[in-house]
Amino acid sequence: MKILVPIKRVVDFNVKVRVKPDGSGVDTANVKMSMNPFDEIAVEEAVRLKERGVATEVVAVSCGVAACQETLRTALAIGADRAILVQADGELEPLAVAKLVAAVAKKEAPQLVILGKQAIDDDANQVGQMVAALLDWPQATFASKVEVAGGKATVKREVDGGLETVELELPAVITTDLRLNEPRYATLPNIMKAKKKPLETLDPAGLGVDVSPRLSTLKVAEPPARKGGGKVADVAELVAKLRNEAKVLP
């Protein structure tokens, strides 16, 4: 069984991003980039399925600029067998990425697509669901446990207020949540091996996918700054303010 793991190169989660002074976006020039943490969990899960003998091959795929190769190498160092870069220079919206991944999936015919539930840059939380829709495959989002046997995946998923177990007939799409696993550290020997593993480059046109954007970003702004020092007179005022002003209580 083959597993396809789409991964995204994002601004490292330790980097505190800054909004550009002209409000056109956040400043991502020369900041440290890393694999989206949820995707790292996806790679780990796929590699574990391979180590358990469930999967036979793990293929990592990333859509974006040439530098995504570094991120793919990271996936190869964790244990993916080979990698595909769908090279595109402009910004790719989730729908475009989903179409590219679906096109790669049609080509590769995996039994499972495992990917992060959301990317920590745009926080969209869309691609996995969209891939499933485009392929007409069943989906299990926000997975916290995955078992695969007898042509089926049994997935525990995080839902509001608890867990839900679903069964999926393969092929299927699974998106990962935080508790699914703890990704390993790539070992030095595996980092060295990763550069010898195959990495293929495709392009959107070759896959027949139109990636033109549907959204335009008009402005990006900082969140309102903290103004400490506010006081309330009593509990009633506190609760009212938390509800109506801060909106942190229902």
Binding site: P94, Q129, A132, A133, F142, D160, L215
Partner: peptide
């Protein structure tokens, strides 16, 4: 959890973007 699970599927089927 439900809205996030469902709506991207709807958007993809309609071939439109979702704004999350």
């Amino acid at each position: 959890g439900q809205g996030k699970n469902v709506m991207p599927r709807v958007a993809a089927k309609l071939d439109v973007a979702q704004v999350s």
